[in-house]
């Protein structure tokens, strides 16, 4: 090990944080560049904003009929809800456009 350039902790902090930020900012622009040159990216379409977007969120959604004919899935979901101590009848099962639970499940076992 050679003699360090400086032993002043604040100068070390300043230099290191500057380098970390510069490298990660450069990486950010590299990611943007990759996205920019990506020949496979889908063409951006102008999506007409539906009126629903500006409307305030409905506090309670009206229960809709169960959209799945698969009785096993309905039974499994009902059993899972019951096991959490919630009683009641499952009135509606609708897929939502969010993958939080799926991603949570995937991430669950990858601690290091």
């Amino acid at each position: 090990m050679h003699q360090p350039v400086t032993t002043n902790p604040f100068i070390i902090m300043l230099i290191n944080m500057t380098v970390v930020f510069i490298v990660l900012i450069a990486l950010m622009y590299l990611i943007k560049l990759i996205h920019f040159i990506d020949p496979t990216k889908p063409k951006e379409k102008k999506v007409e904003t539906p009126a629903v977007v500006s409307a305030p969120a409905q506090p309670v959604e009206t229960p809709a009929p169960v959209e799945s004919n698969n009785e096993e899935i309905v039974a499994a979901i009902t059993a899972a809800i019951s096991s959490m101590g919630v009683t009641g009848v499952v009135k509606a099962i609708r897929p939502i456009n969010r993958d939080g639970w799926k991603q949570s499940g995937r991430a669950f076992n990858m601690n290091y």
């Binding site: 930020f21 990660l24 990486l27 950010m28």
Partner: peptide, 9 residues
């Protein structure tokens, strides 16, 4: 969302 790299820094 590459801007989140800043949070890692």
């Amino acid at each position: 969302r590459p801007v989140t790299l800043m949070l890692g820094a």
